[in-house]
Amino acid sequence: MIPWVQLDRAPLPDGGELRLKRRGTEFSIMLGTNELMNSRLSSSEEALAALACERINGRNAPRILIGGLGMGFTLRAALDALGGDAKVVVAELVPAVVAWARGPMATVFGSCLDDPRVSVRQTDVGLLIRDRATAYDAILLDVDNGPEGIVHKGNDALYGHRGLAEAHAALKPGGVLAVWSSAPDAGFTRRLAGAGFAVEEVNIRANGKRGARHTIWLAVRRSA
Rank of each mutant, 00 (worst) to 15 (best):
G175C: 04
P147R: 13
Y136N: 03
W217T: 04
V89T: 06
G110Y: 12
L75I: 11
V88M: 12
V176A: 12
R23N: 15
A49N: 08
R63G: 02
R210N: 06
L65S: 10
L69F: 13
E148R: 04
L177H: 00
G84K: 09
A198P: 06
P173L: 06
A99S: 13
P3W: 10
A157Q: 00
L141Q: 04
T33R: 07
A183L: 03
G16K: 07
S28R: 15
A133G: 09
V199G: 01
A183V: 03
V199M: 01
L164V: 10
A61Y: 07
V89Q: 01
G194V: 00
T107N: 08
E26A: 11
I2E: 15
A96D: 03
L69K: 06
E45C: 12
L140E: 09
V94G: 05
R205M: 00
R22N: 02
R59P: 13
A167G: 11
A86P: 07
L127G: 05
G67C: 10
R9S: 12
R162Q: 10
A86V: 05
M1Q: 09
V88I: 14
A165W: 08
L113W: 01
V179F: 01
S181H: 03
A183R: 14
D124H: 08
A224G: 13
L41Y: 15
D85H: 11
A170D: 11
A91S: 15
A169H: 04
F73P: 11
R213C: 07
L41I: 02
Y136W: 12
L177A: 04
D115M: 08
E54R: 12
N155I: 02
A106R: 13
T25E: 15
G58M: 06
R102T: 12
N207V: 00
V120E: 05
Y159H: 00
G103W: 13
V120K: 05
A135L: 01
P62Q: 13
W217M: 03
L7C: 13
P116L: 07
S111M: 08
D156Q: 10
G24K: 09
E201V: 00
I29C: 12
K21Y: 11
E35A: 03
A52E: 14
D14N: 13
S42V: 03
G208E: 02
A78H: 09
V89G: 01
R22K: 13
L36A: 10
L82F: 11
R210E: 03
N207C: 01
S223F: 06
D85W: 00
A165Y: 07
A50V: 09
L36M: 15
A195V: 02
R117H: 08
L36G: 02
G154R: 14
G194F: 02
R76H: 10
T33C: 04
L128F: 00
G175A: 02
A193K: 14
E201R: 15
W217C: 04
M30Q: 15
R9H: 12
N34K: 14
G211T: 01
V88N: 14
A10N: 14
G84C: 10
A133K: 06
